[in-house]
Nucleic acid binder design. Structure first.
Length: 456
DNA sequence: GTAGGGTTAG
């Protein structure tokens, strides 16, 4: 009895050390307890497996499984579920499948958690069909789906362009005896917003209001972000005020959303206010918050603080990502230092897709600097181009009054199934008509109309 | 004891 009670105390202690990321200390406590005759049980090891997965990696966690067996304790479904969650977190689908098989071979029956994790990893690995199969396996084999089953499905479907299917599942959920959670609403609202289905998202938000459960800070951040993405800044900032009025706690996500939006509309003073508040509230900066702050200081032209932040990141062992580089390149272009921007772009050791936005910045920077031929050269050298690449070049060609060249690009853009930004399209059409090519204008208009129809 | 929100180009 005493020993069992002590093991429970040991587990409470280990759980709290793991939460505090103090793995070394947890190991010392376990070793000391064993010396005192207090033996760890399955819960102790499962806690440890979970912590190793999150803090070190699934391989390190697997060693704990070996130690568990050596201590005469059989790993159970929780041990395997934790390991599989670790593999899913690292996106290691084959590893997860291996663990799943190993578990079945050892006659440990997978539960709905195991299947949920498998489904999640299939989605993460870009295999929505496989995930869908698992979902229907759960449904058809009476494995009692949990709310998480639906959350993972709805999230995965939204992120893989199946927003309609996600909506259907949302309405279907109740007939399985489940009630949507706040997470379910948040996932769906975000998914629909990102799919451009703002009206459907509003309907779900209304549904949340009717459900009796309250939106949380994540709901607010999600909806706010959706407004900003659609350039509805006024509405977005109204949601911000409401969030403040109602006393919601801001975390790093909320602060970064607000700061980035304020920077985008040029309200850097207010952005600085929120940044200071974020610092005062002791929010730990991660790579995304550093990028947000670097962007703010770039916009203000305070390059001294930018380099200070970069040093700080390095000291803390945080690597610059594509966003950091793109923000810096954009900052250099804006300050008129196109040469350094180009150098920085070429020093980026990443895939072309990760560099696309940075390329767009430099192409635009060259055009704005009056180097339209250099801009065209860079444009031609690009492996892939998007709406922004075309729009920026077209805009700059119009500025240089090279309307014929701009209209050719506009047409090739349409042929590639891309839409030019309205402002760029207008610039071409107005330019052509002003410089005496009205028939050209009509031709382009009808080609655009036909292209749009064929895309529907 | 899973699952959700944040950063770049116009």
């Amino acid at each position: 009895m005493v020993c069992r009670l002590s093991t429970r105390l040991l587990n409470i202690c280990i759980a709290s050390l793991c939460r505090a990321h103090r793995l070394d200390k947890a190991e010392t406590v376990i070793a000391d307890s064993i010396r005192l005759g207090i033996l760890p049980d399955a819960v102790t090891y499962n806690n440890l497996i979970d912590a190793y997965c999150q803090l070190v990696g699934v391989d390190a966690a697997y060693h704990v499984l070996d130690r568990m067996r050596e201590a005469g304790i059989s790993p159970d479904v929780v041990s395997y579920n934790s390991l599989m969650a670790g593999a899913a977190m690292e996106g290691l689908l084959p590893r997860l499948q291996g663990l799943f098989e190993e578990m079945c071979q050892k006659d440990i029956h997978p539960d709905v958690w195991s299947f949920n994790t498998l489904m999640h990893c299939f989605f993460k690995s870009g295999k929505p069909d496989e995930a869908n199969k698992i979902f229907w396996y759960i449904m058809n084999n009476d494995l009692s789906p949990s709310p998480a089953t639906f959350n993972i499905m709805i999230n995965g479907l939204c992120k893989n362009d199946f927003a309609d299917y996600a909506l259907t599942l949302f309405w279907y959920l109740r007939s399985c005896g489940l009630v949507p959670e706040i997470i379910t609403y948040n996932i769906l609202i975000d998914g629909l917003c990102k799919a451009g289905r703002v009206r459907a998202a509003k309907r779900i938000l209304k549904e949340l209001g009717k459900s009796g459960s309250a939106p949380n800070a994540i709901t607010y951040t999600t909806v706010m972000k959706c407004c900003f993405k659609n350039r509805q800044f006024r509405q977005g900032f109204e949601i911000l005020s409401e969030m403040e009025r109602k006393g919601y706690t801001f975390d790093g996500y909320a602060y970064c959303t607000v700061i980035a939006a304020l920077v985008k509309v040029g309200r850097t003073k207010e952005a600085t206010h929120y940044m200071e508040q974020m610092m005062r509230n002791g929010i730990q900066l991660d790579i995304v918050s550093y990028n947000t702050l670097i962007n703010l200081y770039c916009k203000e032209g305070n390059l001294e603080v930018v380099s200070k932040l970069l040093c700080e990141m390095e000291e803390r062992g945080l690597d610059c990502d594509k966003y950091t580089h793109t923000i810096l390149i954009h900052g250099l272009c804006r300050s008129g230092d196109i040469k350094r921007a180009r150098q920085h772009l070429h020093s980026m050791n990443m895939s072309f897709d990760s560099k696309l936005v940075a390329y767009n910045c430099v192409v635009d920077g060259l055009g704005k600097d009056g180097q339209i031929d250099n801009a065209m050269d860079m444009f031609k050298s690009m492996e892939r181009k998007d709406t922004f690449t075309y729009s920026s070049v077209v805009h700059n060609l119009c500025k240089a009054r090279r309307y014929r060249c701009a209209s050719k690009l506009l047409l090739s853009c349409v042929r590639n199934g891309l839409k030019l930004l309205d402002s760029a399209q207008r610039a071409v059409l107005e330019g052509l008509s002003d410089s005496g090519f009205p028939s050209e204008v009509n031709k382009i208009r009808s080609i655009i109309r036909i292209a749009r129809m064929s895309h529907y």
